[in-house]
């Protein structure tokens, strides 16, 4: 895979990875972004701020691709990224896409569906981030999530981490 140009920033890499001009998800751009998140000192914090903004794009394709980038980072950028998505500072940006108090009435159904699927997947797969569970439960309590999605990308979290043998 070609490595990203050193002049690129997280922002320019994200713009490429989420461009509405991309015909399909461009995994080279997406992985370049993930690599940069892993390299930069404050990569997880900065990327979550950029992603929180990008996934609220009024352009459906851009928003959906931003959510795909978030998923890719959760898979590839480890615990420090998980800690960032596990903060309300980021989770609130997802909540805004669903709640009618914010962007919920304007968000495309496809975006809302993907956000709910992701939160559902994370609350099961990232139990060490309790705020994700709290947010998901509140969405259900408020009736914004009627039932758990049937979709779950099992490739994310194939099984719970094995217990250490010497526990």
């Amino acid at each position: 895979m070609a490595s990203a140009d050193e002049n690129e920033t997280l922002e320019t890499l994200l713009n490429k990875a989420t461009s509405p001009m991309n015909r399909d998800e461009d995994w080279e751009y997406i992985m370049n972004f993930c690599d940069r998140v892993n390299i930069e000192l404050e990569g997880p914090e900065i990327s979550c701020r950029l992603l929180g903004h990008k996934m609220q794009s009024p352009q459906e394709r851009e928003a959906l691709q931003a959510l795909t980038v978030v998923e890719a980072c959760v898979k590839n950028c480890g615990e420090s990224f998980h800690r960032q998505v596990g903060k309300f500072r980021f989770l609130n940006e997802m909540i805004k896409l669903i709640s009618p108090k914010y962007l919920g009435t304007k968000s495309p159904e496809s975006v809302k569906k993907k956000v709910i699927e992701m939160l559902y997947s994370w609350q099961a797969g990232l139990p060490q981030e309790p705020k994700i569970i709290e947010a998901y439960q509140m969405l259900k309590k408020q009736g914004l999530v009627k039932e758990d999605p049937v979709y779950m990308d099992k490739a994310y979290f194939p099984s719970p981490a094995p217990r250490p043998k010497n526990a």
Binding site: K87, I98, S99, Y102, A135
Partner: peptide, 16 residues
Amino acid sequence: LGFDEEEERDDHMLPM
């Protein structure tokens, strides 16, 4: 408070 503690204290879920 340290930065992390302060950030944690200010990290709240939005009312829906």
